[in-house]
Design a protein around this nucleic acid. Structure first.
Length: 676
DNA sequence: AATGACTGCCC
DNA sequence: ATTCTGC
DNA sequence: GCAGAATGGGCAGTCATT
């Protein structure tokens, strides 16, 4: 952990200077490089092979040649290394030699991990993982530089772990100064050059625009076409192949939404106040849907034969949910294909209750090893493991036809009309609304007897707060174990399902986004509507654009009974650049050599790079509290051996008015947890 | 067989 | 996940 | 407003070590 950061504070603070130089050159390089890449048809090999001077390499994250899809989301590029500037401690490795066999090295690394699964099938949308993370990289770097950890074990390269380290070491050793940095970052999956997937697609489009001189289409049009194709078939190889084979003009017909291939899911934008809802949807017909606290799941039914599901990031998670996928039924049995978008939640079928996300996440992810008695196995999954329930909210494809370009109103109607609603499969709870004459007018919801009719004019006049409908529904959703609401337009083209294009056309309203003053208060219980105040116990050195600053902090609460500070969470977001700059300076005098004796924390998993005297108090906001295996806050109060931590903690502001002893107490944290 | 470090992927 | 920032 | 890059808790799975 110290290897990489030893230059902290000594670092001339360099940073994003690269970008200045990029400008024109960036586009140029992207285009040039991608041309090469396309021609080579071996992007992933190029990725590593071309860590040369002016290269833009398209690196396929952790998946290599055999899995075109997996790399998409992790696709990274490298830009001109001669504009390089930043320094980052130990990862700067300068050595020399050639880089020729890199592609093979990567393949080898992969096989050390996957040698078990004999049948290496083609490019399914399955994951192939390298299993290389920070730790392995550190070791490799250490090995390559000889700076540290010279574990000269005699039986060194016998284990698969050590093989990985060795491969990477040799990769790094066999690279030139600058190259090493990008090899490391590449394996990290982050190149940090202000240039990622979207830019690659744009570059790809521009490259093709230049190459296919015959086309009358403008560069922008071509880029748009490729973007469109890519959202529906998120796979570089397939898109490129189709362009090369059938021409850009036919791309639309060749690369279209297909059951079996995941679609980039439409995402939502967070808002900060209820008022923003009105700004977005003013006057238009809209709907509020429960936002369930589960896992996004895209369900595919393929040719009447196969069922698959994909996660939000298009990982194939069929094995994890095979049991519940089998429960999805269309009313018309002859329907052979569909794709629906849903949330899967852990569900207590006896109590008819939605269970917390933490329960869902304990579900097994891989297929049971039992082969026989598939039926019994299915029952087992539902009964003895973590039972789940589906809440559908959209349909992207049905019975041979895409439904992307129909209104949400139609898509929802299709869901309600064509799918069997039962214990295991439901439609999300919703309420349709419309702002009218300054007020929200309720149309109807899908809850029985709730209000299947429009508000009368008289009722509308009775609405004091124009956002009341939404606020009430928001509170209701939270009372029903949900995170909040999704607000979407119902009619018009603006309600089309646009995978990734106008990607944030949906609004998510979570209770904890809203300032405490907004009048949304927990009658339904749950959540920390307000924030809590914690003491800054320590800090971690920042990486990347936070090199030279603290990148994260260890926070804790005070337990007056035990007279100790108990770790509660790490904190790494919510700071402006100015904040970080300020804290780096302000907290420096508080640094102490040794851990203050009254600190309670997990030595292994939570130890900061520097410790502080307990002095600074910060206001933190979070979505939930969780029982933690590693944090100590309120330990013994709720559980004997587990403390309490925070879900999605973020910095709000300093509380110079509070002393550490006045921070939120362990008792209070336990209370908040119990109140959920 | 149990434990622990590490990784990837959910949120 | 949340948040901030340059464009 | 987008895209990118910082950063969070916590789980199962994998592999090494004991």
């Amino acid at each position: 952990m110290n290897t990489k950061n030893r230059n902290f504070f000594n670092n001339p603070k360099i940073k994003i200077k690269e970008k200045e130089k990029k400008e024109e050159k960036k586009e140029e390089n992207v285009v040039e490089r991608i041309k090469t890449v396309v021609n080579d048809e071996k992007m992933e090999v190029n990725a590593i092979n071309s860590f040369e001077k002016q290269g833009v390499a398209v690196k396929k994250g952790k998946a290599a040649a055999t899995d075109p899809n997996k790399g998409q989301k992790r696709s990274r590029k490298v830009i001109s290394s001669d504009s390089e500037a930043e320094s980052e401690g130990g990862t700067d490795v300068g050595i020399a030699s050639d880089v020729s066999a890199n592609g093979k090295v990567e393949a080898d690394i992969k096989s050390t991990k996957r040698s078990k699964s004999a049948d290496n099938k083609g490019p399914e949308y399955e994951g192939l993982e390298l299993g290389i993370g920070e730790s392995i990289l550190m070791k490799a770097i250490a090995g390559a530089t000889g700076r540290q950890v010279s574990k000269v074990k005699s039986e060194a390269s016998s284990s698969s772990m050590q093989k990985k380290v060795d491969k990477i070491s040799s990769l790094i050793v066999g690279s030139k100064d600058i190259e090493a940095r990008y090899i490391v970052r590449s394996l990290e999956g982050k190149l940090r050059i202000g240039l990622a997937e979207k830019t690659v697609i744009t570059g790809l489009g521009q490259a093709l625009a230049r190459n296919s001189g015959t086309s009358k289409l403008s560069s922008e049009e071509i880029v748009d076409m490729i973007k469109e194709a890519f959202t529906q078939v998120p796979n570089y190889e397939v898109v490129i192949e189709n362009i090369m084979t059938y021409g850009i003009e036919n791309l639309k017909d060749r690369c279209k939404i297909t059951p079996g291939i995941p679609v980039r899911p439409m995402l939502a934008m967070p808002i900060k106040s209820i008022e923003e809802v009105k700004e977005r949807i003013d006057g238009q017909e809209a709907t509020c849907e429960y936002k369930y606290d589960g896992e996004r799941i895209q369900i595919h039914y393929i040719d009447g034969v196969e069922r698959k599901s994909f996660s939000r990031n298009m990982e194939n998670n069929t094995a994890k949910y095979r049991d519940i996928l089998g429960k999805v039924q269309t009313k018309q049995p002859q329907v052979k294909n569909y794709i629906i978008d849903a949330e899967v939640v852990a569900y207590d079928y006896k109590a008819n209750k939605i269970l917390p996300f933490q329960v869902l996440s304990t579900r097994k992810r891989k297929e049971d090893v039992q082969k026989e008695d598939s039926k019994e196995n299915e029952v087992d999954l539902l009964d003895s493991k973590v039972p789940v329930k589906l809440f559908a909210f959209d349909v992207l494809y049905f019975d041979g036809k895409p439904t992307l370009q129909t209104s949400l109103k139609e898509r929802r109607a299709l869901l309600e009309r064509e799918f069997v609603i039962d214990d295991h499969f439901g439609i999300v709870e919703y309420k349709n609304i419309q702002y009218k004459n300054g007020n929200t007018k309720q149309f109807f919801s899908n809850k029985r007897g709730d209000a299947d009719e429009e508000c009368s004019a008289e009722n509308a006049e009775n609405i004091v707060d124009e956002n009341m409908e939404i606020i009430e529904f928001l509170n209701k959703s939270i009372g029903d174990s949900c995170e909040g609401l999704m607000v979407k337009l119902l009619g018009s083209e603006a309600s089309y399902y646009e995978p990734n294009k106008r990607s944030r056309n949906w609004i998510k309203v979570k209770k904890d986004y809203l300032a405490a003053s907004s009048g949304v208060n927990g009658s339904g219980g749950g959540g920390i509507g307000d924030s809590i105040d914690l003491v800054v116990l320590g800090a971690y050195y920042g990486k990347g654009k936070r090199t030279g600053f603290y990148g994260g902090f260890l926070l804790g609460c005070y337990d007056p009974d035990r007279e100790e500070f108990q770790s509660c969470c790490k904190l790494g977001t919510g700071f402006s650049d100015a904040d970080l700059d300020k804290f780096a300076k302000e907290l420096k005098p508080l640094v102490v050599e040794k851990v203050p004796f009254q600190y309670s924390y997990d030595v292994d998993q939570t130890k900061p790079d520097v410790w502080f005297d307990p002095k600074a108090v910060w206001e933190i906001k979070a979505a939930d509290l969780s029982l933690s295996p590693i944090y100590k806050a309120g330990i013994g109060l709720v559980s004997n051996d587990k403390g309490i931590s925070l879900r999605f903690p973020r910095f709000i502001r300093e509380r110079p008015d509070k002393t550490p002893e006045q921070s939120t107490s362990a008792d209070q944290i336990a209370e908040l947890f119990e109140a959920q």
